[in-house]
C-alpha cells in the first residue's frame, strides 16, 4: 500500500497515527465503568499537570481520571509499543515470521515468578516478594540461562537460543501449573490466572516511569540500527557480507528484547498476539524495511493495545476482562483476514 510512497506521504501517515493515538488515549481515559465528559477529563489532567485548583470536581472523579485510568492508559500504550518493537527484533534476529517477544521463554519465567509471589507464602530467606519484582527475577533468570546455553565463545547461535527458550518455556509453564494446582484457594488462583493472561488492572503511577523509560531506552538503542535489521531480515550471511558486525548487533538486539520483555511482562503479564501480529500487519502496509516499519508498528501497537484494554474494561463492565483475552480474540480474525486478502506471503 505505502511500500514505495514518498517521504512526504509517510510524514502525513505518521502525523495521522499520532493524532489517532492521542484521540485513542483521550477516549480511553474518558470511557469506563463511569463515564466522565471530555471537558472534565481535560480539565482534570490539565489541572493535575499544572497544579491548578481542582476543588470544583468531585474527589472520586479526580481519582478515576488521574489515579486509575490515566496511568493505565499510558502503560498500556507503552506496553503495546514495546511488545511490537520486541516482536520486530525477534523476527529479524530469528529471520522467522513466527517469532514473537516470547520465543526466548522470558515470559514463562516471568509468569512462574509472578505465580510464586501471588500464590506461595513468604519464601525462606527472602520472605514475601512483591509481584513485579518476583516476576522480573523470573524473567532475568530465564534470560541468563538462555544466554549461557545459547551462545558459544561470545557468539549467539540463534537456533540454539530458541531451542533453549522453548525448553525453558515448558519447564516454567510446568512449574507455574504445579503451583496453581497445589493452591487450595480458588479466588487466589483466579487472580493469578487473570494476571497470567495479561492485564493492566493493577497498574498505577509507579509503573509509568518504568514503562516509558524502558520503551524510550529500547527505541534509542534500536533506531540507529534499522539498516542492520534490514540486513538480518534478508539473511545473516548477506548481512555479514555487506559489512554488518553481526556478532555485536545480535547481542544488542537480544539484550534490548530481553530488557523490554522482562520489564513489560513483569508489569502486566504476557499479553499475547500483539507483538507477533502487528509487525505483520504493518509489513503488509509499509513493506519490510525497518526505517518505516518500526515507527509505524510502534504507533499502531500503542493504539491497538489501548483499544484492547478499553474493550477489556467496558465489555463486561463493571467486571474487567484480562486484556490478553481481548488481544487474541480481536487479533486472530484480523490476522486471518489479512492473510487471505493480501499478497503478503510468509514464504516462497
Amino acid at each position: 500500500m505505502l511500500r514505495n510512497s514518498k517521504k512526504g506521504v509517510m510524514a502525513g501517515v505518521y502525523i495521522t497515527l499520532v493524532v489517532l493515538l492521542i484521540t485513542t488515549l483521550v477516549l480511553a481515559v474518558n470511557f469506563g465503568s463511569v463515564d466522565i465528559n471530555y471537558k472534565d477529563v481535560f480539565q482534570i489532567i490539565y489541572g493535575k499537570v499544572f497544579n491548578k485548583d481542582l476543588s470544583s470536581y468531585k474527589n472520586s472523579q479526580i481519582n478515576i481520571i488521574w489515579a486509575l485510568r490515566l496511568p493505565k492508559v499510558i502503560v498500556a500504550a507503552c506496553t503495546g509499543s514495546g511488545l511490537v518493537l520486541t516482536g520486530i527484533l525477534m523476527q529479524a534476529i530469528t529471520k522467522n515470521p513466527l517469532a514473537d517477544p516470547y520465543v526466548l521463554g522470558i515470559s514463562s519465567g516471568a509468569s512462574a515468578g509472578a505465580v510464586i509471589s501471588l500464590l506461595m507464602g513468604p519464601l525462606p530467606l527472602i520472605g514475601k516478594v512483591p509481584l513485579a519484582e518476583s516476576s522480573f527475577a523470573g524473567a532475568l533468570l530465564t534470560a541468563v540461562i538462555v544466554f549461557v546455553f545459547g551462545s558459544r565463545n561470545g557468539k549467539i547461535n540463534t537456533t540454539k537460543m530458541i531451542l533453549v527458550g522453548m525448553a525453558l518455556s515448558s519447564f516454567f509453564s510446568a512449574l507455574t501449573n504445579i503451583i496453581i494446582f497445589l493452591t487450595p484457594d480458588s479466588r487466589r488462583v483466579q487472580s493469578a490466572t487473570f494476571w497470567l493472561t495479561g492485564s493492566f488492572a493493577g497498574t498505577d503511577w509507579s509503573d509509568v516511569p518504568v514503562a516509558v523509560g524502558v520503551l524510550t531506552v529500547g527505541m534509542i538503542l534500536i533506531l540507529p540500527l534499522t539498516r542492520e535489521l534490514d540486513a538480518l531480515l534478508i539473511g545473516e550471511d548477506i548481512a555479514r557480507n555487506t559489512g554488518v558486525n553481526t556478532v555485536r548487533i545480535k547481542w544488542i538486539l537480544i539484550l534490548v528484547s530481553t530488557l523490554l520483555t522482562s520489564v513489560l511482562v513483569s508489569m502486566s503479564g504476557a499479553i499475547g498476539f500483539v507483538g507477533f501480529v502487528i509487525p505483520h500487519i504493518t509489513r503488509n502496509i509499509v513493506g519490510a524495511a525497518h526505517k518505516r516499519l518500526i515507527w509505524f508498528s510502534v504507533l499502531l501497537g500503542a493504539i491497538f493495545m489501548v483499544w484492547a484494554d478499553l474493550f477489556a474494561r467496558i465489555m463486561f463492565s463493571p467486571q474487567e476482562l484480562p486484556v490478553g483475552v481481548v488481544t487474541a480474540l480481536c487479533g486472530t480474525p484480523v490476522f486471518l483476514w489479512m492473510l487471505r486478502k493480501s499478497r503478503y506471503s510468509f514464504s516462497k
Binding site: 522467522n96 539498516r227 534490514d230 534478508i234 550471511d237 555487506t242 524495511a289 516462497k348
Partner: peptide, 24 residues
C-alpha cells in the same frame, strides 16, 4: 561476496535489497 543465497522469507523491494550493498 556473491554466494548461493537462501531466499528471505520477508518481502523487500529490489531497491531495498540492492541498497544493502551500500551499508559499509
Amino acid at each position: 561476496i556473491v554466494a548461493q543465497e537462501n531466499q528471505p522469507d520477508f518481502d523487500f523491494s529490489v531497491r531495498e535489497m540492492v541498497i544493502m550493498g551500500r551499508y559499509s
